[in-house]
Structure formats: structure tokens, C-alpha cells
């Protein structure tokens, strides 16, 4: 053994910011997360040059996966131009030299907060979702140690009870985003705060989804072709947001998840949440040649 085998050349910063040991830990945990879909795997979660709660979990996964030929897309609330998405995209590109894109079809890696793009993801694409709170049981059990035991026992009774009480009180499940879902018939997970509109996109999808919570230090995953079933009662079916009939005021796109824009006269208009899909729709209307991917929803409906 020589000194050279024990040392390496000085670098001002590791490639992709994270040092090799941080990456290895995340790799090991990602593999376990894939092996047990929907089960939260604890990891050390290094501090990165971004505040906790701002996508540091997703960022660590992306930094581990990045290489100079992976094209990355970053969205926040569906938009590429959202300030935090811009900040994360700039950071990823700066530390990895990877090319960026706004187009879902061109991306190899998509890091997202609160949305899944409207165009279907392919087998060769990886979706990284930022997760503020990885524990679906938190509303019924804030203590993480007890909640972990409940997952171990597949004890989801209180979760069901909570949903039942909502139906009794309000006639429906009142959960907005982050709809708790059963993965591979065993673990209840949060799909992260994506709208209910997006949860069915995870069910038997072609792509791999990795969900990472940096502040709470947990990774979970939904491998391709894995069952993701929102918790529902047989007689009260799962209901996505009633956006199927809405039209985007700016692009004319219809039948996708929308942002509601309040107007001075008390009414509302709507804009498509997947901003780049909106841009492509506008470009097409203006006569540009644009390539669209297949969408999960057709005419505002998700084919079953």
C-alpha cells in the first residue's frame, strides 16, 4: 500500500457538493427504500447550503444521482420559474455541471415540490419529490417512535378512524394534498403534498419515484409498477380535485390541475399548474412545432 492509494487530490468542493461518504449513505438508504416500497428509511441527512424545509432532502438525493450527462428539471408547485425551483436548479447545475431543462420530456431527473408533471414519466426517468413531513400518521400520532411502532404492526386503525370521522362530519374525506396511500399492500405513506390529482400517477407508474425529507431525515420510494392505493372506503370512492372541466386562461389547456387566480370582481380565473405544459400549449397555438408527451389525464379524466 502506498500513500497515493490512501489519499486523493485536493478539491475545493466534492463533485456534486456532497462528500463521498454522504453519497454512499444515501445510496444505501435509497436501495432499502426501493426494497421496501413506502417504508420510511432513516438517514443522517447532511446539511446543505439551503435551509431545512426548502427541499434539502430532495436535493441530497438529486446530488447523489447527478452526473454531467443527466438532464435535470426542477419544479415547485408545478412551475419551473418558481423562485425556489430556480434556486435549486441553479445550485444543481452549478455543483454538478449537469444540463437543465424545463421540458418534462427532456429530463432524466425531475426534482419537484408538490406536483407531478402532467405528461407521463417514462421508464428512464426518475422523479424526486421533496417531502416536508414523511409521516402519514403524524396527525394521529405526533411522536415518531410510537408512529414507527404502528407502521411495524401495520396498525393503521386510527388513520382509518380519522378518515371515517371526516366522512361522518363533512360527507367526504377532508384531506387536501398529501393523501395517505397504501403502498404494495403493506405500508401507508404520504405521497408528499401533491394534490389528490397526482396520487394516481404513482400507481403502477413506469418511473421510479424517490421521496426524501431532509429535515425529518427519512427516505421512502415508490418503485415502478408498484401498487399505490389511496386509503378509501368501498362506498366512498377516492375523489381528485374537480379540475377536469377547467380551462387555462392563458394557454387554453383544458382538463389538468389548475391554479385558481382570484379576480377583482369576486370571480376566479384559472391557470394550468404545470407551467411548462402551458408554455408548450401556447407555443403550439402560435404555430411553433412542439412535442407533447402522452398525458396521464385525457379530457380531464384518468383512464382506469
Amino acid at each position: 500500500m502506498s500513500l497515493a492509494t490512501l489519499t486523493k487530490n485536493w478539491e475545493p468542493m466534492s463533485y456534486g457538493f456532497l462528500d463521498a461518504s454522504a453519497k454512499r449513505e444515501i445510496r444505501r438508504k435509497m436501495l432499502k427504500a426501493v426494497a421496501v416500497p413506502g417504508c420510511q428509511m432513516p438517514y443522517a441527512s447532511r446539511e446543505v447550503p439551503m435551509a431545512r424545509g426548502w427541499g434539502t432532502g430532495g436535493l441530497q438525493v438529486s446530488l447523489t444521482l447527478m452526473n454531467p450527462s443527466k438532464r435535470v428539471k426542477v419544479i415547485d408547485q408545478g412551475a419551473d420559474d418558481s423562485v425556489n425551483a430556480a434556486s435549486i436548479r441553479r445550485f444543481l447545475a452549478r455543483v454538478s455541471g449537469a444540463p437543465t431543462t424545463l421540458d418534462t420530456l427532456e429530463a432524466d431527473l425531475i426534482q419537484s415540490r408538490h406536483r407531478i408533471p402532467e405528461e407521463k414519466l417514462r421508464e428512464d426517468q426518475v422523479l424526486v419529490l421533496q417531502v416536508p413531513n414523511p409521516e402519514p400518521l403524524r396527525p394521529v400520532q405526533p411522536n415518531m417512535s410510537i408512529a414507527r411502532q404502528m407502521h411495524a404492526d401495520a396498525d393503521y386503525g386510527r388513520m382509518w378512524l380519522q378518515l371515517y370521522e371526516q366522512i361522518v362530519r363533512s360527507g367526504r374525506v377532508m384531506q387536501g394534498a398529501s393523501y395517505p396511500s397504501l403502498v404494495n399492500g403493506r405500508h401507508v405513506m404520504t405521497p408528499s403534498p401533491i394534490p389528490r390529482w397526482d396520487v394516481p400517477k404513482l400507481h403502477m407508474a413506469k418511473h421510479l419515484t424517490i421521496l426524501s425529507a431532509g429535515r425529518e431525515k427519512r427516505i421512502h420510494a415508490v418503485p415502478p409498477f408498484t401498487r399505490v392505493e389511496p386509503l378509501v372506503f368501498d362506498d366512498v370512492p377516492y375523489k381528485v380535485e374537480d379540475h377536469g372541466g377547467l380551462t387555462c386562461n392563458r394557454s387554453g389547456a383544458k382538463g389538468f390541475f389548475m391554479n385558481e387566480i382570484p379576480q377583482d370582481d369576486g370571480s376566479s380565473t384559472y391557470e394550468i399548474s404545470d407551467s411548462e405544459f402551458g408554455v408548450k400549449t401556447i407555443k403550439q397555438a402560435e404555430g411553433e412545432r412542439v412535442e407533447f408527451g402522452e398525458t396521464w389525464y385525457t379530457d380531464g379524466e384518468m383512464p382506469s
Binding site: K8, N9, E11, P12, M13, S14, Y15, G16, A20, K23, R24, L65, M66, N67, P68, R94, V95, S96, G97
Partner: peptide, 15 residues
């Protein structure tokens, strides 16, 4: 911070 980060051979292999 360098201009364009380039992965080392080891980093490339591991990735």
C-alpha cells in the same frame, strides 16, 4: 468553487 465541476474517476464509477 470551480467553474465547471468535473467528477473524478472514482466518483464517475460509483455514480
Amino acid at each position: 468553487m470551480t467553474a465547471i465541476p468535473i467528477p473524478s474517476e472514482a466518483e464517475r464509477r460509483s455514480n
